[in-house]
Computed example of a mutant assay.
Amino acid sequence: MKAVTVQDGVLSVAEVPLPAPGPGQVRLRVTRAGICGSDLHVRVHAGASADVAAEVGYPDFMRPGHRVVMGHEFTGVVDEYGPGCRRRWRPGQALVALPLIRHGHDVHMIGLSEHAPGAYAEYMLVAEDTAMPVPAGVSPDLAALTEPLAVARHAVGRGQISRRDTAVVIGCGPIGLATILMLKAAGVRRIIAGDYAEGRRELARRCGAHLVVDPATASPWTGLASSITDVYGAGLDALHRLRGVPGLPWWLAVRAARRLATAGVVVFECVGVPGVLEDIVTHAPIRSRVVVVGVCMEPDTFRPAMAINKEIDLRFSFCYDPAEFRETLHLIAGGRVDPRPLITDVVGLDGVADAFDRLSKPGDHAKILVDPAQG
């Protein structure tokens, strides 16, 4: 069968063996695959990515010299079952699946290891237990976006954002746009987005951002940030008024006010390049929650003293759990999330290398999908 392989950063279409499903595995005929931002990173930073993966306990992440079929965002139809399967679905049933598969006792990351070929291919293997049927009426284009949207759903959950909070999304690439979609689905009433690329700013508007800014000409923090003296001054004014009420236990009033605190700001860092985190810590309002979603592959720094003085709550978001994955699929199926603005092109296997090059230059593109059947 045909597949796109990557080795030492070079993408090429090659003939590879048709995979045979093992125990508990299902072979899918791939109908769509998404090109992920992490694929772009790993193509040029495979060594650094593999070192981090090894440190957290996964030694088989792709490294320089490995020949890997990438693609961990996908949908396909049932082609063949391996031994020991429950055969839950008929041949031809459309499925999505978590990008994890077990070979013997070892668990592998699909599309990111030479032991688990991914979806830039005509066929691929998934674990039957991780697969989920695509609801009727959901196109392959939309089903393939389940995985990146699940990443965004998890990130929004990590932010513990309420409808009355203000969300600030820094970076409107695919993961930033997916985050905007999930914030909108969560009912957040004020979503501010910032990106230097005009095309991506327009996509952010289409995804539901209420205010979109070009950081080169405007600040996403306008009207949000206040100085520490303003905060202290407001506190002293409130304390003066409370202590002027005879017999009032002012400390109880302060506790009550803390419980009824006004809406806050939750920031989603969706860029993943050095310097962005420091900029956010410097300019975000006092007591903001910052959720880091963008994958920065280089060492970075920020000033802890600044974060401490402002009591910034810094969180990191990586993946999702199986329930979040299923919930995302059904949000798409039910129309509560419309990811169509993300899709800016569909290419065949022979167009994958060019698509990687286009996506590596921020511009009008967000999510380019791969259709292995397209000539």
Rank of each mutant, 00 (worst) to 15 (best):
M1K: 05
K2R: 13
K2G: 01
T5C: 15
D8K: 05
V16P: 03
P17A: 07
P17T: 03
L18Q: 04
R27T: 11
L28K: 11
R29F: 06
R29G: 06
V30C: 01
T31R: 12
I35L: 07
R43A: 07
G47I: 04
E55H: 13
F61A: 03
P64Q: 05
P64N: 03
H66Q: 07
G76L: 09
E80T: 12
Y81P: 07
P83C: 13
A94N: 01
L95Q: 00
A97Q: 00
L98V: 03
I101K: 02
H103P: 09
G111L: 01
G111T: 04
A119V: 00
Y120L: 06
Y120A: 05
T130L: 08
P140M: 10
D141W: 04
P148F: 00
R153E: 13
R153Y: 06
A155Q: 08
V156L: 08
S162W: 11
T166K: 03
T166I: 02
C172Y: 05
G173I: 10
A178H: 06
T179E: 08
A185Y: 00
V188R: 05
A193V: 11
D195R: 00
E198N: 07
E198Q: 14
E198F: 07
G199A: 08
L203I: 06
R205Y: 01
C207M: 03
V213C: 15
P220H: 05
P220Y: 10
L224D: 14
S227G: 15
I228W: 11
I228S: 14
T229Y: 10
T229D: 14
T229R: 15
D230T: 00
G235D: 06
A238L: 05
P246Q: 10
L248N: 08
P249A: 07
W251P: 13
L252V: 14
V254G: 06
A256I: 12
T262Y: 01
V267I: 12
G275Y: 05
L277N: 11
D279G: 15
T282W: 00
R289D: 10
V295L: 09
E298R: 15
P299S: 02
D300Y: 08
D300P: 10
P304D: 12
I308R: 13
R315L: 08
F316S: 14
Y320M: 05
Y320N: 06
E324P: 00
R326W: 00
R326V: 06
I332F: 02
A333N: 10
G334A: 14
G335W: 12
V337H: 09
L342A: 06
L342Q: 00
D345A: 14
L349M: 06
D350Y: 03
G351L: 06
A355Y: 02
A355Q: 05
D357M: 02
D357G: 14
L369H: 01
D371I: 02
A373I: 13
A373S: 11
